[in-house]
Amino acid sequence: MGENQEKNEPIILCKDVHKWFDDFHALRGISMEVQLREVVVIFGPSGSGKSTFIRTLNRLEEHQRGQIIVDGIELSHDVRNIERIRMETGMVFQQFNLFPHLSVLQNITLAPIWVRKWTKDQAEEVAMQLLERVGIPEQARKFPGQLSGGQQQRVAIARALAMQPKIMLFDEPTSALDPEMIKEVLDVMIELARSGMTMLVVTHEMGFARGVADRMYFFDEGLIVESGSPDDIFNNPREDRTKLFLSQILHH
């Protein structure tokens, strides 16, 4: 399915996605297309629905109207579809969400062994390669609680990559980190973007956006206010709200 994709068929297609929390209209019609190997940055004020949106893509939140198609599979109540999409998408959270009772290696190999049905040896080999890639192979036998925040987030990235996803979702991956650890995580993400991974990244790291993003989306109040290339967004933002927000986060 994904392999025979035509050049312009998007790997993620969202049409008029709506989401309510009780009466609260959190997503008010989001439409977005993401091509294979594209890096998309989503930014906007707190509470604007960025997390909610990115979480509808792997069904951590259920959308109530509109259409979401990931890698040719439409997200619906069909559990098999949800399973398949979750196998194709990795997610990295603001709070890392590593499993504290499992070692770093076990954190990474759990899903490959039980979902992809790899052997333990196979999974551990891949895990070690990934730890190498994120720069902490020496931490394999430790537990998450023994690592720094930056190291934990890099393990979380390795854990998501171990499932060999086609798409990686990042929800503010550096917001919970001390400033001196942000760079080590961003470096891993930049390397990943350059390697051709399709990425959706919620972040306010504008250096990262300028460096690797293909498109940027500005969210406010559950809507996409403006989108464009980093060049458009930083140099000629059309909307006043975008200008105001950018001036607030860039001048700090």
Binding site: L60, N97, V115
Partner: peptide
Amino acid sequence: IPEGQVEAAKALGLSGLQ
């Protein structure tokens, strides 16, 4: 157990029983 634990596991594709 924080909800994030379950979400991370779901995002990895683990089943409810797992």
